[in-house]
Design a protein around this nucleic acid. Structure first.
Length: 920
RNA sequence: GCCGACGUGGUGGAAUUGGUAGACACGCUGUCUUGAGGGGGCAGUGCGGAAACGCGUGCGAGUUCGAGUCUCGCCGUCGGCACCA
């Protein structure tokens, strides 16, 4: 059975005077499942209609943490509203769902509860799938995938081996957080105040070999393609641009002996104009020069050792106290030959550039603070173009300006000087212009168990050998016992193997991949999750790119950048085939299908419409970044210094007259708890609110409606269930309105004929509402105002009196439109009401209503009358009144006369359709 | 520390392109209905004022006939910072 006409159960069984969500929702969900109502037909497959353009609507898949939280409800309801709306607009919609199933929490749960990570994960998936289904989402469950299953990750391993052969993946040393007591690598999240979360030991930095993806090879494309993504929020593109961090600067070589010998210290700077202000150079603790100087300097060796403590997280490095020590070594200024001291500084990172910086205290804040602290000289060489510096400096002057005390370069502007200095340096062989990126290559090795095994075999004679395709997948054993560290490293029966090249004894790599790898390509696999022969087939060409991607703003950089990168990797491996074009159904106009109704409002023209992205180069055409659902956190400090987090549901709060929480105590013992601030709902802070209680009490439709009504999608939302009742009441009122209308007998919707003034006004509001709701959902993606507009319409309908045939036909027209417009948000009640209003109605084929232009015509409009910008009255004029006539009417009005106080009008501003402002 | 965003009644929020601040809800107050509870209906609800009117969008300045919206500075909150996902 494909798309059968929906015949809802005889309504009398469900449609009593009271709204019964538990009955309606169970019935609707059962019917949708039986009909496979949300199966997305593949090209040339059963049920495929080539005249319908495709719409791939994807919400970020969840980590199966145990149960749904409010953020999930928000995310998936937003996606569902867009998917259902587009289905009603005639698109072939695909909305899939799956599980981001590898990750650290499964190992933590395994240690805490003595269950295997796999068993824990699968149980969570089963429970959460049930929860998602109870929300009534229009998901094609036949495409479900879980990243921890070999039939998924085998293709990740397959791609890894291809990329390894291509040289896109390489191995190098990288620094990790090392817990010296537990002998294990810690995630940044597991380092709290510089100590391991379980052992409490001071964390050390340690270098270990890891595999890296050469994402920096794609930095230029990842940056420039952002300009071809008009459907992405500007803030996300800005964050990605800054993260990639392309900068133009100069590499400068400081000779290490005088006269200039072969050894030089290389630094990179974007401010080569400040070169004459250099008073020292600073190197990272791991820099070879630092190591060399420490060999016979115990104090320096001790300092370098101290630098090795602490986490590797950049936020920690950037906020820690800046410390340094003189190495006693000198470098020589490339122009003046002057000797400058070489310092070791903890704020210089070995992984960045050359692991060394030139320090100009006068013109860099960090260098200024450092020079102050260690009494290093501060030498100013840049002054403002139109003034002088106040010397001695009290803070760094970091603006561009004009050079002084800079030999032949004095008097030049910063920009000009950078060019010239780079040229002269090049002539001397002591540097040149360089473009650098802040973006670093992506290290994907994880010393953990619950992840995708890296398909490499280490052979003593052949080196690192990728696992041959025929031997894939390298299956992760699921029946294991977890304690500290990865069990793979203690399973020789798993890791011992034969070298694929020479056949000799070899060992498997026991590291697994970063879980960001799985989430970087799942969107493509949804097109063909059942293909056991290939990673992607022709269906990916049809469905990609994703037309609408929806997910939390917290993924603005890492996940979205990695997925964009992977898309390009898959393209370059040839996975999208030779015919890299989107299916013709979607080419050109957004609505090319003649069978489809036009939008009830104009399509915006301009930049966005013209700058069409090149589809196959980018995975996500349009991006909606949902704001976080946040909640207050509460904790108590335990005797061992650790924090015990309490759920807001277990805490009673006291508020001041401003509504701010001033005190809180635990309900169970009445004793105070510490207020920890508002943060995104998470397991680790125990501030998640379980949506299940909400669904159980009010039904999925109320939960969905309230979520969409509470705030616009992009905004962060502090959770409060005040207002849920209001959403529920609205649905009850709607139910009652339809019930009372239908109880008087079925009528056809209004289709023409004379209307009284009040009826005409109501019908205009109805069609204005259709226009607004369409625009709110499709263009603005702001559902709270769409719902508010429907509520206003319902309030107006309640005021529409009379049971004559015309009024009843208007009421029918309005209720049909309301049920249709609300269906994307509250599909269960939407279907039930439509079947009630139009017996035999086929919900699966429900079409979005269109505004009747003739209903929108207005003869008179009301303008706002201002005097000196202050509201003084209203002015009713003919809709087509000329500007002069409006001015005359405004000046003649008693309100204007009164507030002009006899003065003459200096100016009259008329804004068409809005206001008149008289300036005196 | 760096990057990005946000800040509007008692509360969630609206104001779409610089043009009526507070739509729509929650809560509260009054009132009607009900044996009570619950539910529902009606009216009111930014602050001050009897009113006229004045004030009002985190704070301070600026641009404009007109600023919640634009510019600059400050304060506060949230997200990210490469091994949480």
């Amino acid at each position: 059975m494909l798309v059968s006409s929906s015949t809802f159960r005889p309504i009398t069984a469900i449609m009593d005077a009271n709204y019964r969500p538990e009955l309606i929702e169970a019935e609707a969900q059962k019917q949708w499942e039986a009909e496979q109502a949300f199966r997305a037909p593949d090209p040339n497959g059963p049920g495929f209609d080539p005249t319908r353009p495709k719409y791939y609507c994807l919400s970020m898949f969840p980590y199966p943490s145990g149960k749904l939280h409010m953020g999930h409800v928000r995310n998936y309801t937003i996606g569902d509203v867009l998917a259902r709306y587009h289905k009603m607009r005639g698109y072939n919609v695909m909305q899939p769902m799956g599980w981001d199933a590898f990750g650290l929490p499964a190992e933590n749960a395994a240690m805490a509860n003595q269950v295997a990570p796999a068993a824990w994960t699968y149980a969570n998936i089963d429970y959460m799938r049930k929860q998602l289904k109870s929300l009534g989402l229009a998901i094609d469950w036949s495409r479900e995938l879980a990243t921890c299953k070999p039939d998924y990750y085998r293709w990740e391993q397959w791609l890894f081996t291809k990329l390894f052969d291509k040289g896109v993946i390489y191995k190098k040393l990288a620094t990790v957080n090392w817990d010296p007591v537990d002998h294990t690598v810690l995630a940044n999240e597991q380092v709290i105040d510089g100590r391991g979360w379980r052992s409490g030991a001071l964390v050390e930095k340690r270098d270990i070999p890891m595999y890296f993806f050469r994402i920096t090879d794609y930095a230029e494309e990842l940056l420039s393609e952002l300009d071809h993504l008009p459907g992405w929020p500007e803030r996300v593109k800005t964050m990605q641009r800054n993260w990639i961090g392309k900068s133009f600067g100069v590499e400068i070589h400081f000779p290490l002996s005088q006269p200039a010998g072969q050894d030089v210290l290389k630094v990179f700077t974007t401010r080569a104009d400040t070169l004459f202000g250099v008073t020292y150079v600073a190197v990272a603790a791991e820099h070879p020069l630092a190591q060399q100087a420490a060999a016979n300097n115990p104090a320096l060796a001790a300092f370098i050792n101290e630098c090795k403590q602490g986490s590797v997280a950049e936020a920690d490095l950037a906020t820690m106290e800046k410390k340094g020590m003189d190495t006693g070594l000198k470098a020589y200024h490339p122009f003046t030959g002057e000797a400058v001291p070489i310092w070791v500084a903890n704020y210089v990172l070995m992984g960045y550039g050359e692991g060394a910086v030139m320090a100009v205290p006068a013109h860099d804040e960090r260098d200024f603070a450092f020079a102050r602290k260690y009494h290093l000289p501060i030498k100013a060489v840049i002054k403002p173009a139109d003034g002088e510096l106040n010397l001695p400096l009290t803070e760094a002057y970091t603006e561009n300006g004009v050079l002084f005390d800079s030999s032949d370069f004095s008097g030049r502007t910063s920009q000009d000087a950078i060019e010239k200095i780079a040229l002269v340096l090049k002539g001397l062989g002591l540097g040149e212009r360089r473009t650098t990126f802040r973006l670093r290559d992506w290290g994907i090795s994880r010393q953990r168990y619950w992840g995708c095994p890296i398909p490499i075999i280490h052979c003593p004679s052949c080196g690192d050998v990728p696992v041959p395709e025929a031997q894939l997948p390298v299956v992760l054993p699921e029946d294991v016992v977890i304690d500290i560290g990865s069990p793979l490293k203690k399973m020789p029966e798993w890791s011992n193997c034969a070298c694929p090249k020479c056949g000799g004894a070899a060992e498997r790599e026991t590291d697994t991949m970063d879980t960001f790898v799985e989430s970087s390509w799942y969107y493509a696999r949804y097109a063909c999750p059942d293909n056991n022969e290939k990673m992607l087939d022709g269906r990916a060409n049809h469905w990609l790119p994703v037309d609408q991607y929806i997910g939390g703003i917290e993924h603005a950089i890492l996940h979205l950048l990695y997925a964009r990168f992977f898309h390009k990797l898959m393209r370059d491996v040839g996975l999208f085939g030779a015919e890299n074009v989107r299916s013709s159904a979607n080419a050109g106009s957004p609505h090319p299908n003649p069978l489809m109704k036009p939008l009830p409002f104009g399509i915006p023209e301009g930049e966005g419409a013209i700058a069409k992205p090149k589809p196959i180069d980018e995975p996500f055409l349009n991006l909606l970044t949902q704001g976080m659902v946040v909640a207050e956190t509460y904790y108590r400090e335990l005797p061992d210094g650790k924090k015990q987090w309490h759920n807001p549901a277990d805490v009673e709060v006291e508020r001041n007259e401003k509504g701010h929480i001033v005190a809180a105590k635990l309900k169970s013992d009445g004793q105070p708890v510490v207020i920890g601030g508002i943060e995104k709902m998470s397991k680790s802070k125990n501030n998640g609110v379980d949506p299940q209680a909400l669904i159980d009490q009010y039904g999925a439709d109320t939960a969905r409606l309230f979520m969409m009504f509470a705030a616009p999608p992009e905004q962060s939302l502090e959770w409060s269930d005040a207002g849920v009742e209001g959403a529920h009441r609205f649905l009850k009122r709607l139910w009652k309105a339809v019930h009372e209308h239908v109880a008087k007998g079925n009528v056809a919707a209004y289709s023409g004929g004379e209307l009284a003034e009040a009826q005409q006004g109501f019908r205009r509001q109805l069609h204005q509402t259709i226009q607004k709701v369409s625009d709110d959902i499709e263009r603005r993606q702001q559902f709270n105002t769409a719902i508010a507009a429907v509520m206003e319409l319902m309030n107006a309908l309640a005021r529409l009196d009379g049971d004559d045939a015309v009024t009843r036909s208007l009421r029918q027209e309005a209720l049909e439109a309301v049920a249709l417009m609300l269906s994307p948000m509250v599909p269960h009640i939407g279907q039930a009401l439509l079947v009630e209003l139009k017996p035999g109605f086929a919900f699966a084929q429900a079409a979005w209503p269109t505004a009747d232009a003739s209903a929108l015509v207005q003869n008179e409009i009301e303008l706002v009358l201002q005097v000196n910008g202050k509201l003084r009255g209203k002015l009713t004029v003919a809709a087509d009144a000329a500007k002069e006539a409006i001015e005359q009417a405004a000046l003649a009005s008693p309100e204007a006369q009164k507030h002009m106080e006899g003065k003459a009008a200096k100016k009259v501003v008329v804004v068409a359709g809005r206001l008149v402002n008289i300036v005196v």
